[in-house]
Amino acid sequence: MGVNTNPVLGGDGFVTTKLSSFANWARKNSLWPMPFGTACCAIEMMGAFASRFDLSRFGAEVVRFSPRQADLMIVSGTITYKMASVCRKIYDQMPEPKWVIAMGSCTCGGGPFDSYAVVQGIDEFLPVDVYVGGCPPRPEALIDAVMKIQKKIEREGAPIV
């Protein structure tokens, strides 16, 4: 990106950039999260969305409960095998491009539940972009994860379709 001034425009400036980096800039500052909260991590996620931690400072305040309108899935809470197919279905319903945050020990690797019903990490069935450890992680940790997603989007060089 470069800022220019042009006498033809009466001294007003303009910015030259690539379309892909412009799109990435827009995408990273308007992430619409789809909350998939199944357990106590969801409480911390709500804390991150609410006024004290205020995720809207990073442009991610429009929490959508419809996957069709979301591009960031925050999976927070224990995922059982019975829930996993639902989780996958909701992920499939989200439009591209999309990203996934695995929030908490349970989603990252099963947490304390080494049992017959619990998925040992959601990367068994979802492509996870950022893992957040903790049981549950503090809202700061989730904010950090969102910022990491933003950095990742910034670097993306995929052509716009």
Partner: peptide
């Protein structure tokens, strides 16, 4: 007599 760590039946259903 069921092994609590046996995830195979759950995986099959999933």
């Amino acid at each position: 007599d069921f092994d609590v760590r046996n995830r195979e039946p759950s995986k099959r259903c999933f």
